[in-house]
Amino acid sequence: MFSGPSSPHPEPRRRRRGVLVAVLLVAVVAAGAAGWFLRRSADGEPPAAAPHGAPAPSHAPTGHGAGHAPSGHARLTGKVVLLDPGHNLRNRDHTAKIARPVDVGNARKECDTTGTSTDDGYAEASYTLDVARRARELLHKEGAKVVFTQDGDRPYGPCVDERAALGNSAHADAAVSVHADGSAVGNRGFHVILPARVTAGKADTSAIVAPSRALGTQLAARFGAVTGSAPSNYLGDGTGLDVRSDLGGLNLSKVPKVFIECGNMRDPKDAAQLTDPQWRQKAARGIAEGITDFLED
């Protein structure tokens, strides 16, 4: 029985020493465990799971360039990546505004378009935003700062010239515009669109043609390997690469930039992949790893 301070029979001295030793031992063990946990976290290993019912730590992004803290082995610390989710689901509600022409250097083209969709109505704009968000999470874990052209937070667009300007103003080390194609049934596979050499009006791609090709080559290789998808059977002669001079998002870019058409939404077999969340995670990983390969070279 414990005897409190007011007890007329105080605890023997030897028992007090035993209690003190036990307390010191508990403190030493606790300090050692805390040190092990901190060393484990510092080495990049995940901490033990929280007890059942405890709230998980929040990692929600707070802005276009915000996100997870990088892992202990982050490879892209200090790098800036622009992700450009193609089109915008709300474009269909602003057809007059997205139809207005903008200067793309060697021509005038529509501000933006509504994009395509699968036969059952899954919109390209929904696909591109979902995959871009998944890729952003993966790139954040590698330490990159990721800038979006739109995150479902704009009434329409942005226009193609602004999409290029956003990458330029961010001084992006790499920029990728995410799309899915709307070609004929039987046309399958992915392709990466590279900028042609364009020097006209506001456009001058001279400095980005070579690095953009390097980016596109890495992206095509990783995307195919991760997703298991074959390069396009209707563009690029089996290389998965296509060069174009009519896209404002490429013509007006001052940073290495490519487009990736992840598959053909109008082909049933490709559409089955594009609408599968597990496949979209693979697509995001292929994009993120392709960008990482390029930036590590």
Rank of each mutant, 00 (worst) to 15 (best):
V176P: 03
G157T: 05
R133W: 01
E137H: 11
V176E: 07
L129Q: 08
Y127K: 04
F148I: 02
L166C: 04
A172T: 10
R134P: 12
A144C: 04
Y122A: 03
Q150V: 02
G152C: 05
A174Y: 06
E124Y: 03
E137A: 13
L139K: 03
V147H: 09
R133T: 00
V146R: 07
Y156E: 05
A132I: 06
E142C: 02
K141N: 13
T149C: 08
P158G: 06
A132F: 03
V131M: 01
D161S: 06
P155G: 07
H179N: 12
D173M: 02
A125N: 06
S169W: 15
E162T: 12
A144S: 05
N168Q: 15
Q150H: 10
R133S: 04
D153G: 00
V146G: 10
G167T: 14
Y127Q: 01
E124D: 06
G152I: 02
K145V: 15
L129K: 01
V178L: 11
V146I: 07
A164H: 05
P155Y: 00
F148P: 09
N168R: 12
L138Q: 15
G167W: 08
K141E: 11
S126P: 07
A170D: 05
V147A: 11
E162H: 05
Q150P: 03
E124M: 13
H140I: 04
G152V: 00
E142Q: 12
L139N: 07
S169I: 13
D151A: 12
R136M: 08
N168P: 12
V147M: 15
Y122F: 15
D161I: 07
S177Q: 02
K141T: 10
L138V: 00
R154Y: 11
V146A: 12
L138S: 06
A123C: 01
S177V: 01
A132S: 08
S126C: 04
Q150L: 01
G167V: 13
E137C: 07
L166W: 13
V178W: 07
E137I: 10
N168G: 15
V178T: 05
A174R: 08
L139R: 08
A132C: 01
A170R: 14
Q150K: 09
S126L: 07
G152Q: 01
S169H: 15
D151Q: 06
L138R: 10
H179Q: 13
F148Y: 04
T149W: 05
Q150F: 06
H140P: 00
L138H: 07
A172G: 11
